[in-house]
Amino acid sequence: MALKASELKVGDTHTARLVEDLKRTQLVQYAGASGDYNPLHSDEIFTTKVAGYPSVFAHGMLTMGMTGKMLTDYVGDARLTKYGVRFTSQVWPGDTLDSTATVKAVTDKDGKKVVELDVKTVNQNGVEVLSGYAEARVDP
C-alpha cells in the first residue's frame, strides 16, 4: 500500500487519467459540494454574455481535487503532508485530463522518511492546466 523510501528513485513517475470528456454536470456537482456557486462554472448565459468567456469552465479547485485523487492513490490514505498548486490554464467542459507525480527527492523530516513530488496535470492537447508539488510520509 504505502510507498517505501528504499524503493523510490528520483525521477520515478505515477500517472493517472483524471477525467475523460469533462461534463458540465460535474462542475455543478462540485459547486454543490464545495459551496462555490460562482456562475462562471455553471451559468452559460452569464459566462458567455457578461463575463466574456466561450463557455463555463471548471473551478480550479475541481482540477486540484481530481489531481488529489491521483496523489492519494499513489502515496496512500492519510499520508499527504503538503499539497500546493498553481492553476496555469483554464479547464473546459469536454477536456480530458491526465496527471503525473514525479519523485523529486526522498528525504528525512523529523526522523521520518518523506517523498517530495512534482505534480503536473495536462489536457488532451498537452497544455499544462495545473502545476504544483506534494509531500507525503513514506515507509522506510
Binding site: 460562482n38 456562475p39 462562471l40 448565459i45 452569464f46 459566462t47 454574455k49 457578461v50 463575463a51 466574456g52 468567456y53 473551478h59 480550479g60 479547485m61 486540484m64 503532508t81 503538503k82 499539497y83 500546493g84 498548486v85 498553481r86 492553476f87
Partner: peptide, 26 residues
C-alpha cells in the same frame, strides 16, 4: 444575463472573488 449591473465591462473573474491562481495546503 446578470442579476446585477456590473461596475466595469472587463474583469475576467466576474464579480466576487476573481479567478483562483494558486492554492496550498499543509
Amino acid at each position: 444575463p446578470s442579476g446585477v449591473t456590473r461596475e466595469s465591462s472587463g474583469g475576467g473573474g466576474g464579480n466576487g472573488g476573481g479567478l483562483h491562481a494558486e492554492q496550498h495546503f499543509e
